[in-house]
Amino acid sequence: MSLSLLERIQSDIKDSLRSGQKERLSILRMVMAQIKNKAIEKGRDAQLTEDEIVDLLAGMLRKMEESVAQFTMGGREDLAEKERSEMVVIREFMPEPLSVEQIDGLIAEAIKETHATSAKEMGSVMKWLTPKTMGRADNRVVSQKVKALLGG
């Protein structure tokens, strides 16, 4: 039986604590705090699903990428590097990214399955695609590819 994403994060926190990896421990605790906050927002005694945790981690990574760009533009390479090292740890818990070929294949399948022929049907294509690409592909890139194929 494989560990759930939440169990993996909790296990890594314990391992980091035992091995004295302070930076890693700090990052993992930050991730757990985000997960707990999201669960609290969801409601009393709520638990996040694997997909919700992946979505949360993907959102954290997007924000960190924006921060890296801002820090780099501002000449603060030290802060940009700190964000990059945090991103490396968070990416360990993300599903394997899809290749360009896999994304293109899923898009072709989605268009076929939804019988989409124009940009008006882009919503139904994205609705079909999103669960299959969540945390594994940048939705903006997927959306742009779908739009281009549907003539939007």
Rank of each mutant, 00 (worst) to 15 (best):
T133M: 09
E50T: 15
W128D: 04
L129R: 01
E109H: 01
A80E: 00
G74F: 00
S143N: 15
G59C: 02
S124V: 15
G105C: 03
M60P: 01
I90V: 14
E81C: 00
E101W: 01
A110M: 03
K147E: 13
G74T: 00
A58F: 06
V125Q: 06
A116M: 06
V89M: 04
G74I: 00
D78G: 00
M94N: 05
L106I: 04
A46N: 10
T130V: 13
G75V: 02
E86N: 08
A69T: 06
E101L: 12
M73N: 09
P95E: 06
M60V: 03
M94H: 03
D138G: 03
R84E: 11
M126C: 07
E52M: 07
I53P: 04
A58E: 11
S67T: 06
M73T: 07
A119S: 13
E113S: 08
E121R: 14
R91P: 03
E83W: 00
M122D: 06
E66C: 02
G59R: 07
P95I: 08
N139P: 08
F93E: 07
F93G: 10
V142H: 08
R140K: 14
E50Y: 10
G135I: 02
A58H: 09
A110W: 01
P95Y: 06
T114C: 01
K127V: 12
E86F: 01
A119H: 09
K132I: 11
P131K: 03
S99A: 05
N139V: 12
G75N: 00
V125E: 06
K82F: 04
P97M: 08
A137K: 02
F93C: 10
L79Y: 01
I53F: 03
H115D: 12
A58M: 04
I103A: 08
V142Y: 05
